[in-house]
């Protein structure tokens, strides 16, 4: 099997088979990652550049370590202290990176669609590490990897996603990915933070957290951006937490063995009570490990395209 596109821009346009293939590959990578010698030659001679127009600690570090564990050369560019800050266009920046012999560009950008624009103008593979409110496909892949690892499958599972759906690229990627893989997705959040016509994507949208949580196999709480309060999207953190925060009481509505996830970083006491965040069934810390495995898999699969190996 081979990935259809040179790039990973989102899960929207990816097939269930491709997603399955990435998750299977990540399983092997996790084995490497958790072994004593975290070094494979898979990306020897390959060059990876992370181009981040937004601040990020974990995603960037995750990609960087994934590259290093597989022996790639890697470099970072961030929006301050580079040509980006001088007003160079995305295409010009991309072409410059491309011409230095880069195999993969990992981009995070505040504008939806920026990775798509970049991908059209460079030879390198482009991985979307989060674009505006559009997608964050590697996060959704690591979420699906975690669920599959814990539950054995994605098909038929009931997954509840709670929080600010409107601004969440994590939610969007998970919606595309999970529905393709046969999971049942239910969503809840403040009415001001639900995108229009979301039901048309094949998910259920509820106005109370109770309905969404009912009999859930998995719950994904989203990070609440505290500054949204200033734009009158919700009255206060206190009220948000009262109606949409997950505590042990609410968790009882879900299945007994519900898996608790969060893309991080967690606002303790807001989206999740500390008891829930640190719960036995919380996979929040494992999600981080799985993120590296999924990113190793993607870097490997994308750089392998076009080589002889890709024919198998």
């Amino acid at each position: 099997m081979i990935l259809k596109s040179k790039d990973l821009l989102g899960l929207k346009d990816m097939s269930a088979e491709e997603i399955e293939y990435i998750l299977d590959t990540a399983k092997t990578m996790k084995y490497v990652l958790t072994s004593n010698s975290k070094r494979t030659p898979h990306l020897q001679g390959k060059s990876i550049v992370t181009l981040f127009y937004e601040n990020s600690t974990r995603t960037r570090l995750s990609f960087e370590l994934a590259s290093k564990y597989m022996s790639a050369s890697s470099a970072n560019i961030n929006s301050s202290g580079s040509s980006v800050a001088k007003g160079e266009s995305l295409i010009d920046t991309g072409k410059t990176i491309d011409m230095m012999g880069t195999d993969v560009i990992v981009i995070r950008h505040p504008q939806s669609g920026a990775p798509h624009l970049l991908a059209k103008h460079v030879k390198a593979s482009v991985i979307n590490a989060g674009d505006g409110m559009n997608e964050h496909p590697t996060q959704a892949l690591l979420d699906m990897f975690t669920i599959r690892e814990k539950k054995g499958t994605l098909k038929g599972l009931k997954v509840a996603i709670i929080g600010d759906i409107y601004h969440s690229r994590v939610a969007r990627s998970n919606i595309w990915g999970l529905t393709k893989m046969g999971a049942e997705v239910s969503l809840a959040g403040p009415a001001t933070l639900i995108p229009p016509k979301l039901e048309m994507t094949g998910v259920r949208v509820y106005s109370t957290v109770h309905e969404a949580l009912m009999d859930a196999d998995v719950v994904i709480a989203l990070r609440m951006q505290l500054e949204r309060q200033k734009k009158a999207l919700f009255p206060s953190i206190r009220e948000y937490s009262r109606f949409f925060g997950l505590d042990e009481n609410r968790l009882r509505l879900a299945k007994k063995d519900v898996l608790i996830m969060h893309p991080g970083p967690v606002n303790r006491g807001v989206e999740l009570s500390s008891a829930v965040a640190d719960h036995d069934q919380s996979a929040i810390n494992e999600q981080v490990t799985n993120g590296v495995a999924v990113r190793m898999a993607l870097l490997y699969l994308l750089t392998r395209r076009g080589t002889n190996e890709a024919a198998d």
Binding site: K12, S112, G113, D131, G132, M133, N134, E135, R169, R172, P195, P196, K197, L198, M200, T201
Partner: peptide, 13 residues
């Protein structure tokens, strides 16, 4: 335009 397409593209409507 705000609608299904803006939701799909992750653009503000």
């Amino acid at each position: 335009n705000e609608g299904y397409t803006s939701t799909v593209l992750g653009l503000k409507g």
